[in-house]
Design a protein around this nucleic acid. Structure first.
Lengths: 163, 163
DNA sequence: GATGATATATAGCCAGTGCTATGAAATCGC
DNA sequence: GCGATTTCATAGCACTGGCTATATATCATC
């Protein structure tokens, strides 16, 4: 079992049921998910960046990844090892790092999400620079449902916005 | 100096200037900010939750905070110590934790932001549950400018939406 | 006021993600 | 092909934020 979760209390919700609709447990669940998502976010940032580098520079080297992410090279090295173990990338020493099909798929999904979020913010009137920055932070927390809503809004804009 | 930033490279942008508009450095800056923001996010989550608990239950105890956040009580104890050192809260052992004026202000700001983000998502047609979850994740990454855009949209909705 | 329950504090562990320093391997230039 | 440069790997450290186990302090009840 991953987390025991301590079920020893005998229904602690009953003594104080003045909460509107959200009980403590589901609240906690959300926070836990958010915490655990941090690992995934890093993976996504790496894979997305690697895809971008390959597309733009023809290759993705550790030093360049490090420079883009603003971290030291050994930090990248360790993370790449993990990404390789997880099957997202393939490392060819002194030739750069490449995406596996799985990695490509993840990168594409992230890129699509990023584009939608950033485009959405801009459509709302947010400045380019801020849209880019906020999109970078938000993208990992946008569920598919919300993404659909963003996309819907963008479509609507396209119809009415070009008059 | 906080981060040396390694200025030893002689203008590394010049050899490959095929990037559209974003150089590696500003890219890196964004990631670094996002990383450093994590500490702040936790503070905000705590302060916001404490305010909510005080408002709803009349008091905020460690055990309850722990239950809401889905973490163990010692984790909360350590974080509360930090929040107290940082001047956000005041701990009165066995009587609960209270917000300082600074803490109150932070909590209010976070609450406002949270409300706007969640309301905005709902206005976009996102289901209540998902809106709540996504807002929790997104709120820390929404800049004031984007928040204003969200608020503007909500105002617009109010006018045309009630027809 | 003793005692059991509850609340808090503390110690010590682990994993993750930063870092620097440094070693080893490959590539490049000549 | 040899030395310099570049690229990558590794070791070892710090900090944060999880955890469990356990001690201590307060509260409530009798």
């Amino acid at each position: 079992m991953d987390r025991p979760h301590d079920m020893t209390q005998p229904a602690p919700t009953s003594p104080k049921r003045d909460t509107p609709g959200i009980d403590a447990e589901s609240h906690a669940e959300g926070f836990q998910k958010t915490r655990n998502a941090r690992r995934t976010e890093l993976c996504e940032d790496y894979v997305e960046l690697i895809a971008e580098l390959i597309g733009r520079e023809g290759e993705a080297r550790q030093v360049e990844i490090a420079r883009r992410l603003g971290v030291a090279q050994p930090t990248v090295a360790r993370m790449l090892k993990r990404l390789a173990e997880d099957g997202y990338i393939q490392q060819r020493p002194y030739r750069g790092v490449f995406l596996t099909p799985i990695g490509e798929a993840l990168a594409a999904a992230c890129h699509r999400r990023h584009e939608i979020v950033e485009g959405f913010l801009r459509a709302l009137g947010v400045s380019d620079e801020v849209a880019r920055h906020d999109a970078e932070g938000m993208e990992h927390h946008v569920s598919e449902e919300t993404l659909q809503a963003f996309a819907r809004f963008l479509d609507g804009q396209q119809d009415t916005g070009t008059r």
